[in-house]
Design a protein around this nucleic acid. Structure first.
Lengths: 209, 209
DNA sequence: CAAAATTTTGACCGGTTGGACAAACGTTAG
DNA sequence: CTAACGTTTGTCCAACCGGTCAAAATTTTG
């Protein structure tokens, strides 16, 4: 089996972390094919053959990075639970996702890059693990709708819209900054976004009657 | 000046179109650096040197493609006008953007790719033309808010959220299909999305009192 | 038709890239 | 200390890639 313990030395653990950090930087900025092993090696402060001692192939780095990413990336959705007040629960899911876009933009872009290219490496995961998780949460949301706690609508597209609006601030960061300009494009943009999204998802745009 | 008329033959016009169509296919799927001239040439049914007879450099193809894209891409926002009913106006803007995601997904992905990589080639346009346009429309929307026609909120982030939610169905298509599964992932997903987005933007998620 | 202009092709080139490899260097355990 | 093991480096290679060029094939024009 593949699952046998890799048994790594202290140096191996440290250097692998170093490489993964560097690779995240490079891959998220240039995409997989747009990144070279040399770039990653330089960003990690080592020579190319040295890097290839820790990861035999460029693809191995990307794969490792992607596996780690997915766990943390879906954590907020996993936390979405039936216990609290539905509207509060959704609001904090949106807030958490927006915080992730703010704090882990490189991870978001790495993921976006992969999906944009047709998700060649993670399609099975999307159709399996991800779909299962989303279906499960959709059921929870449907329950809230039946109980009259939130408006009746499509839970799947609701989740998509939360992903889209929050990740937009990481993936399209350059555009957001450019449009907001120097004065409004600073760090405060995330608070503005949070306020706006809260209002949008709770009340929509209709004026208060 | 650069602006002198290019004076092209019939064959040049036809072949350039063929190349641009092929390049759109290839670039949108693999990104700029991930695409090779050979791939584009093959997709266009010609040899590499032949292609390079019509576009001297790979970058020229991309640039031409991008220039054309931007005009059509921003057309829906340009049409957003002060004349009609605000809510109707916004609703049809959302619908038009969603139709573009459905009908021109490759263009959407080409654009997304460029922004993701930091918009190296179109940053000036974002800070100039695009910002100007968005600021202008934000003013229109602010007018609607002052007149009590729609709820008071941030117009810029409102526009971002419309871009994000609609383009999501083009850029993250693979993920959307994977999560919706075989039964709900067919063409009908755009109608479902349209219904959902209309409700979201108009009424939000609060249950009707 | 024939000359001129345009289009297409095959061969080629320099630079880059992912990766292999053996030798050198460092570290650690007995 | 020293043998075994782990780490690092320089060198090298084959494939690929963007782009050139001159010559051949084709189309257009007079």
């Amino acid at each position: 089996m593949e699952g046998s313990a890799p048994r790594r030395t202290r140096i191996q653990q440290e250097k692998r972390e170093l490489i993964l950090e560097a690779a995240l930087e490079v891959f998220s900025a240039n995409g997989f094919r747009g990144s070279t092993i040399d770039q990653i090696a330089e960003a990690a402060g080592m020579s190319k053959p040295n890097l290839l001692y820790y990861f035999r192939r460029k693809e191995d780095i990307h794969e490792t990075l992607m596996q780690r990413l997915l766990d943390t990336w879906l954590a907020p959705l996993r936390e979405l639970d039936d216990i609290g007040d539905p509207l509060t629960e959704l609001r904090s899911y949106i807030r958490r996702k927006l915080e992730m876009a703010r704090d882990f933009p490189r991870e978001s872009r790495l993921f976006a890059n992969e999906i944009l290219q047709g998700a060649p490496r993670i399609k099975p995961m999307l159709e399996g693990e991800l779909k299962t998780l989303v279906d499960e949460k959709a059921t929870v949301i449907k329950g809230w709708m039946r109980a009259g706690k939130i408006a009746r609508t499509d839970p799947w597209h609701l989740i998509f819209s939360i992903w889209a609006t929050t990740q937009h601030y990481a993936d399209f960061d350059v555009q957001v900054r450019a449009v907001l300009g120097a004065d409004r494009g600073g760090e405060g943009r995330f608070e503005d976004a949070a306020r706006f999204l809260e209002q949008l998802f709770l009340d929509g745009l209709k004026p208060k009657g």
